[in-house]
């Protein structure tokens, strides 16, 4: 938690125009309603901190938290260490719905919730399709599920690219959104994402102990009194909702939900009662630094956030796959 707060403040001071940490601190403190007085900073510094960087940074934290939480949920309920919104194809599924809305200018048909709702619907349909592809004789193999997810992901992202080339005037918006970016996203986007996190987190904490019992199989959990079908349904729906919220704002930012729950697990062990809440914080920190990297690494030019997370996440995914192979080979 402290680490997260510190990261936010440090990241606030980093950027194309560097501001000293002290200045950032005092600007922040003076934004609080009960603190008065004039610090005597440039008007531009205040604008940079409160209107440009702060909303963006908080959004990065929220998106990271949502994706990481969704990843923890998927991994727990599917008992699949390779599962994450991206590898399951859910993120791409959500992006189809979101791109569709952007393409046809329906962004606000039902207020600010339009895109997340449609993204959720296409996301959950995608998840159902991936399950159907992966299931053979009732059982789902870990690798087959991910293979199905990646196939569906490839197909759907091609589909979204196709949509983005269909019209000329919005092409840049879809393209940039698609690669996962949170630049020039204001406070209104934070408002869209935050409620999903505020609902998703308590629900997953509520089911954390059930997820622990899932480790030894759904039957095992059922024998100990878990309503396995209901748990599965709720956790999958909530994880997809979190993904939809994140994707509808930033496009597909891959591997966050894979990397963070794993790192948390390495540190605190297999207990989902710790993994779930810590994934939120860890995901927030991770995406915040990824985004900070995205906006400063190339000087004035922005790297799409999805590119940064993929550059870090894909090798990690490869490592997990390799480790599984070694473990399996050892057991056989």
């Amino acid at each position: 938690m402290l680490l997260l707060a510190a990261s936010i403040v440090i990241s606030l001071s980093i950027g194309t125009s560097n501001l000293p940490l002290r200045e950032v601190w005092s600007i922040l403190i003076h934004q609080l309603p009960f603190v008065s007085g004039d610090g005597g900073w440039d008007e531009s510094s205040i604008v940079i901190v409160t209107d440009v960087r702060l909303p963006r940074i908080l959004l990065a934290v929220l998106i990271g938290a949502c994706l990481s939480l969704a990843g923890a949920g998927f991994q727990g309920v599917l008992r699949n260490p390779l599962a994450d919104p991206f590898t399951l194809g859910v993120a791409s599924g959500c992006s189809v719905g979101a791109a569709f809305m952007i393409l046809f200018g329906y962004q606000t048909v039902a207020g600010i919730w339009s895109i997340p709702i449609v993204a959720f619907i296409t996301g959950i349909i995608t998840l159902a399709i991936v399950f159907m592809l992966a299931r053979s004789r009732g059982a789902m193999n870990v690798e087959t599920l991910i293979l199905s997810g990646v196939i569906v992901q490839a197909f759907l992202s091609a589909f979204v690219s196709l949509m983005s080339t269909l019209t000329n005037d919005v092409v840049n918006e879809i393209m940039f959104w698609l690669m996962g970016s949170i630049s020039s996203r204001g406070w209104e986007h934070t408002q869209v994402v935050l409620p999903f996190l505020l609902i998703g987190l308590p629900v997953l904490i509520r089911y954390a102990q059930s997820l622990n019992l899932f480790v030894f199989g759904e039957r095992h959990a059922a024998y100990l009194g878990v309503d396995a079908e209901r748990t599965k349904l709720i956790v999958l729906v909530v994880s997809t909702l979190l993904t939809a919220a994140a994707v509808s704002v930033t496009g597909v930012v891959g591997f966050v939900g894979l990397v963070i729950p794993h790192l948390i697990r390495l540190v605190v062990g297999p207990d989902y009662r710790l993994i779930v809440p810590l994934s939120v914080i860890g995901g927030g920190i991770y995406l915040l630094w990824s985004d900070t990297l995205a906006r400063v690494a190339m000087g004035g030019r922005e790297i799409p956030l999805g590119v940064v997370t993929a550059l870090i996440g894909a090798p990690f995914f490869a490592y997990l796959l390799y480790k599984r192979k070694v473990v399996k080979g050892g057991a056989a």
Partner: peptide, 30 residues
């Protein structure tokens, strides 16, 4: 209801426990 039944019916499954990182005490307490 599953939880109701689990209060007085227990099942020891075939094949046993997979390695999952939990300690003996944690698993027993489940």
């Amino acid at each position: 209801p599953r939880k109701e039944l689990a209060k007085w019916v227990a099942v020891l499954q075939q094949g046993g426990l997979i390695p999952a990182g939990f300690t003996v005490r944690e698993v027993a307490a489940m």
